[in-house]
Nucleic acid binder design. Structure first.
Lengths: 230, 230
DNA sequence: TGCCATACTTACGAAGCCGTAGGTTACGGA
DNA sequence: TCCGTAACCTACGGCTTCGTAAGTATGGCA
């Protein structure tokens, strides 16, 4: 069941070599090592996102790339190898974005920026997010979303911890609140992935509204105070 | 690689028939249809929880139950059949508990009760929760946690919707806030599953604290106002 | 005591998938 | 134009797993 044909081109920068009007049938595409590698990563990401790790076969990936299995093994040593690279890149991307958003400012601004960053990631790297949300090969100990989320939550923890101390609250509770905040944004993001109803910035504004004022003191029309760069 | 031996007994109510001191080696256990069925469901739940659907083989389930594969096929028609029953039961359980908690009271009490109910479910039916959190066989359209979460979120939506109208807010935003609240509790629950640090009731109190007052107006020592029944 | 339904087995067939051994083609420089 | 190297292929071996066909034991009941 091969459902897609050779040239799938995402990373096709100089695919022009494969002339559309070759000498009769579609000339075989011969990429450079790096090109093929990137293409396989793209395809792998897509497939892993929609069928999960176990549900995706190496043959399928190869077929969709228009090559045969050994090519995949050549580049990544196997399915797990490819998967690892995909996940690693996505984790880096997400972490960079969120960390970048959590650098400076008043706590409320940080919250805003982080929420926005996460939604931004979800929107831009949807497949990646889907993969991170799913579970990894065998154990889920490390490399899973749970642990990634924890990484992010840890950063939030630090911020909250300071704030708590300043206010005289029990700092030991920071992790709980951090988790709650991250969870709120993450699951809302997942929901938003299907709905796409309010715009990204608006969603972020409402999340901040809820997290900051609580149901008791909700503002009718919340706005993001910070200035978006993107 | 069979790692466990025959009599694993969860649903062992009248297992006494299988005398420990039989005529030489462990006499074979012969259950009634209903008994075996329940046992297989128990074992299936456990295995699915720790290895996921694809990672669990029918043979493994059968082996752990001390029977051979065809028995499983006899009862459930296949792996998917068994899985479906397990998931269905868990969803019912969770939904019942949460729905029961969302029946009457002031919004804030509802929030409290619902949060507590979810944590309660997670604590009592940990394996079930793990299964619901994972993803189902093929598509994730229906039967997944996402959809279950949506079911719950829908109920929260109704409550919020009323409240919003009463306060003159845009009721179209109720889904977003519902999702955020449910997400907050759900992911915190998942985190709590590993940590178990503060007690259930305390976690619930803090979640309510956050959801109700927001970071801005957090109370240092929140308490649940409602009276727990369980 | 002997029958028969029900619980349970052993033994395969077929399929899918991972991973590899060994051979083939094309590109680009000398 | 020739050659080496990088890119790629065909063809298996081996393993796991699903699912089924056909037969065996066991225990209650006439």
């Amino acid at each position: 069941m091969i459902d897609s044909v050779a040239i799938d081109s995402n990373t096709t920068s100089n695919k022009d070599r494969a002339q559309a009007a070759g000498p009769r049938r579609t000339r075989r595409v011969r990429m450079t090592g790096a090109e093929r590698r990137e293409q396989l990563l793209d395809i792998g990401r897509t497939l892993f996102a929609e069928r999960g790790f176990e549900g995706t076969s190496v043959e399928e990936i190869a077929a969709k790339a228009g090559v045969s299995k050994p090519v995949v093994y050549e580049h990544f040593g196997g399915k797990e190898g490819l998967y690892a690279v995909v996940v690693d890149r996505e984790m880096r991307q997400l972490l960079d974005m969120v960390t970048g958003a959590l650098t400076a400012g008043h706590p409320r601004e940080l919250l805003e920026q982080a929420a926005f960053a996460l939604l931004d990631y979800i929107e831009t790297y949807t497949d990646g997010f889907r993969i991170l949300v799913r579970d990894s090969p065998v154990a889920q100990s490390t490399g899973t979303f749970a642990s990634l989320i924890s990484d992010i939550a840890t950063q939030v923890e630090d911020i909250l911890g300071l704030e708590f101390k300043a206010r005289g609250f029990d700092a030991k509770l920071a992790p709980l609140y951090a988790q709650a905040l991250v969870g709120m944004v993450a699951l809302t993001g997942q929901w938003w992935l299907d709905v796409r109803k309010p715009k990204k910035a608006e969603v972020a504004a409402h999340l901040v509204n809820l997290a900051w004022h609580g149901l008791d003191g909700l503002e009718p029309k919340p706005r993001l105070v910070g200035h978006r760069r993107a």
